[in-house]
Design a protein around this nucleic acid. Structure first.
Lengths: 257, 257
DNA sequence: TAAACCTGTTCCCGAGAGGGGAACCGATGA
DNA sequence: TCATCGGTTCCCCTCTCGGGAACAGGTTTA
C-alpha cells in the first residue's frame, strides 16, 4: 500500500458525507435544529431529519434543549485513538517533562494528510498561549515539528508530500518555495533537529526533534516560546538538547512496537 | 422537544450505519484491511472499499501500514465535545481536587441515553483501578452517579428512563426492581447524596452528589474506593461532605449557562 | 517457474435507498 | 383566533450504492 497524500477519486458515498457535514456543524455550534441544519447544508428538512434520526440511533448525537450535540461516545473514540497512536503514555510524559524543564509550551505531533497533527500538548507557567489544539493540523513547512518529521521521512513519501504543498506565507519568514524547503531539510538532517524562527507565528520560535523507530519516523516533539527568551544560543544549546533527549526517551520506550 | 429515551423508528440511513460500523471496528483494532472488514461486517469488498474511500476523503481515517486507523481529527472533535458539555474546566478541577483530598478515584458523569456517561475522571495514589473510562457508560441504577442524577430529574424524564431499564444484577447487592429503585431515589432526594454499596463492582463503594443549575440536573460527581476504607461513618461524614462541596463549587461556577 | 492464493481495486447492473417537496401537526405569540 | 415557525410524516422518482465478478499486483507454495 503506497503512502497516500493526493486525493484519489474512486467511488465515494454521498450520505456518509452528509452525515459528517452535520457532525462538523454540530462540532462548533450546539443546539442546532433540523431547519437550521437544512439551510446551512443546503438539504431538505426531511433529509436532515432522517440523518439526525440515524446518528441518534447510533448514539453519536444527543438531543439537548432544542437541538442536538455530540455524545460523549466521541470521548471514548478519542481514547482509543490515543491508545493506538503509538505509545501515548510515554509521549505525554515526555511532553510534560519538557514543560517542567522549561516552563514553556511543548507539543508532540505526527504526520497526517501531509500536515502535522498535534497528538499532545502541555503548557507551562510562563507559556505564551498559542491557538494550537490537540487534533488540529498545521502545514509542515512552517513548523518545526513538520520540518523535523519531513526531514526524516523516506524520500518517496517526502516527495509525495512536498508535491502537494502550497506555500502560504504565514509570516515574512515562512518558507515559500520547494527549493528553500529542501535546503532547510538537508540542514535539519545534518544537525538532527529543526527550528522554526517565527515562520508560523510572529514572535514565536520553536525547536523540534524527530522521534524514530528504526527507519520509520513516528513523529516529533517540540518546545515553543517567545523570541525574547528563545535566543540563538539557547535554541542551539539547552533547548535542542532537551528535545533531543526527550525524543530519545520516547524512542527507547517504543522499541517493541 | 420531549426527552427521548426509547428508540423511535422513523427513517434511518443505511450507508451511514455501515460507515459507523466500520469506525467501530477500527476503534478497537488497528491495521484492518478491506477484506477483513468486509467479512466482519458482512458486506461485499466493493461496498467497504467505497466507504473507506469516503472516510479517507473526509480525513477521518488514515492509511497506516497495511490497514487503516482513525485520524487525530477525532481528538479535535473530542475537545469540542468537552467544551460544549458544560463548564469542563471547572468540573475537571473539582474532580481533581476531590482526588487530592482523598487519594481515591473521582468521576463526573452526565445522563446520556438513559445511562451515566463519564465526562471526566481522576485517580489518586492509592486508588483501586476500575475499568471506567471517560466516554463510556454505565447503568444508572447500579451507580451512585446514576442514582444521584436520576433522583433529581423531573418526574416525566425520570419515569421515561426507568421504564426502559432492564435490571441486570452486577453484584448481589445491585438494585433489581423498579420499586426498590424508587424507594432508593426517595431516600437520596432526602439526604442530598447517593451511595453505591458494592452494587456495581464487588468491594467498591461510592458517594455521589448531583450538580444542578436551577431545576436542571447537569450531572453528578463522585468518589469511589474500596469498602475497607469506605466505612459507613466516612461515607456519611467526610466523604459525602466532600462531594457535596465539590458539586456546590461547580454549581456556583455554572450560574451563567 | 508457474500455479495457487492472497490482497486491494475496478466495473457494471439493478433494486431500493434516500433526497426532496409538500402536507401535517403542535407550540408559541401576537 | 390566526399566523408563524419549528419538527415530523408521507410519498414519489431518481440515481445512489450495495453486490457480484472480473482484474491486477504481490507473496507463498509446490
Amino acid at each position: 500500500m503506497p503512502p497516500q497524500t493526493g486525493n484519489r477519486p474512486g467511488r465515494t458515498i454521498r450520505s456518509v458525507k452528509i452525515a459528517f457535514n452535520i457532525i462538523e456543524v454540530l462540532k462548533d455550534q450546539n443546539d442546532v435544529g433540523v431547519t437550521e441544519l437544512a439551510n446551512e447544508l443546503g438539504h431538505s428538512k426531511s433529509t436532515i431529519h432522517s440523518h439526525l434520526r440515524t446518528l441518534e440511533e447510533i448514539e453519536i448525537l444527543v438531543r439537548e434543549g432544542d437541538g442536538y450535540r455530540l455524545s460523549l461516545q466521541i470521548l471514548d473514540m478519542a481514547n482509543h485513538v490515543r491508545d493506538h497512536a503509538g505509545n501515548y503514555e510515554v509521549v505525554q510524559n515526555e511532553v510534560e517533562s519538557l514543560v517542567e524543564e522549561t516552563g514553556e509550551i511543548a507539543h508532540f505531533g505526527i504526520e497526517e494528510y501531509g500536515q502535522v497533527a498535534y497528538l499532545c500538548k502541555a503548557t507551562g507557567e510562563q507559556a505564551v498561549e498559542t491557538a494550537s489544539r490537540v487534533g488540529t493540523r498545521q502545514p509542515m513547512y512552517s513548523t518545526s515539528l513538520g520540518k523535523a518529521i519531513l526531514a526524516y521521512l523516506p524520500d518517496s513519501h517526502q516527495e509525495a508530500i512536498v508535491d502537494t504543498m502550497e506555500f502560504v506565507s504565514k509570516t515574512p519568514k515562512t518558507i515559500s518555495s520547494r527549493e528553500e524547503l529542501y535546503a532547510e531539510l538537508d540542514r535539519i538532517a545534518e544537525q538532527g533537529y529543526a527550528l522554526d524562527d517565527e515562520e508560523n507565528i510572529e514572535g514565536l520560535r520553536c525547536v523540534a526533534a524527530p522521534v524514530r523507530n528504526g527507519p520509520k519516523v513516528l513523529g516529533a516533539i517540540s518546545i515553543s516560546g517567545p523570541s525574547s527568551r528563545f535566543t540563538d544560543e539557547r535554541l542551539h544549546g539547552e533547548l535542542s538538547d532537551s528535545v533531543l533527549r526527550a525524543a530519545n526517551v520516547i524512542e527507547l520506550n517504543t522499541k517493541f512496537s
